[in-house]
Amino acid sequence: MKTESRLEKVFAAGHIAVTSEVGPPRGCDVDIVEKKANMIKDHVDGINITDNQTAMVRMSSIAGAVIVKNMGLDPIIQMVARDRNRLAMQADIIGAYSLGINTMLCLSGDHPKFGDHPTAKAVYDVDSVNMIKMVTDMRDTGKFQGGADIKMPPKMFVGAAANPFADPFELRVARLAKKAKAGVDFIQTQCIFNMDKFETWMKGVCDRGLDKEVKILAGITPMKSVGMARYMKNKVPGMDVPDEVIKRLEGVSKEQQPEEGIKMAIEQMERMKEIPGVAGFHIMAIEWEERVAEIVEGAGLYPRPQV
């Protein structure tokens, strides 16, 4: 074992892992974090705390993670390359680890253009691939990115994102290979709706043996309504929502759409369990944390293993 991460232990014991996420509030309300975490806590092995998602200022990921940690749970901090240079990243990684956080996700981050501070200067000192390399080097060689030794280095279990759908599609397996080469331990994918394309990507991943190097958690987002499906198809960068998803939601009454969305997510997970290389699920129930439990149960992934 490289770390004390519960997620690493779940993988090591051969279980299908389940993670989900909590978006911190746009203010100081600790109750919001606790409420959201409480809704999912018994059904997941790790809880992502997003980092200024969609380039909107929120309670910091590390602060949210400490709140979750103090509840006896297992937070996964997220860190975007947009907001920090390599000094700030390493300081925060050390700080987070010192506060008991042992799992993190390295991301590029949405462009500031989309958020509520579009006049900000984006940092992008190191990209997500080099962030992975930096954190794994801190852990495995005990060195800062600048080369100096770290006294008591942080031991993070390191994740990253992958979008199997964004163009150019042919490059997406190579992109994962590059993150694997940088040392990433696990991947949480973008929300998957196009199952055929996801299967094609996974086949490319397995053909190269990347599934042996990196644990891949398939991204699941239940649709609340046909309106949400259309929005994600048309407005969210890098999202691939096939027409049949929209048609199926259109086929039921408005009141029935949330139930249909949950049903679709569970069916998807059942199908994905059979896809070679899928090591777990990352459930992104956007402002719908209260339904995560039944999705996990519906997919036959409850109770979670005690590791």
Binding site: S108, H111, Y124, D127, N130, A166, R175, K178, P237
Partner: peptide, 13 residues
């Protein structure tokens, strides 16, 4: 737009 050195982010459409 992000001066990424190792490939595209997940946001391309």
């Amino acid at each position: 737009s992000k001066s990424l050195l190792n490939g595209p982010c997940g946001g391309t459409s």
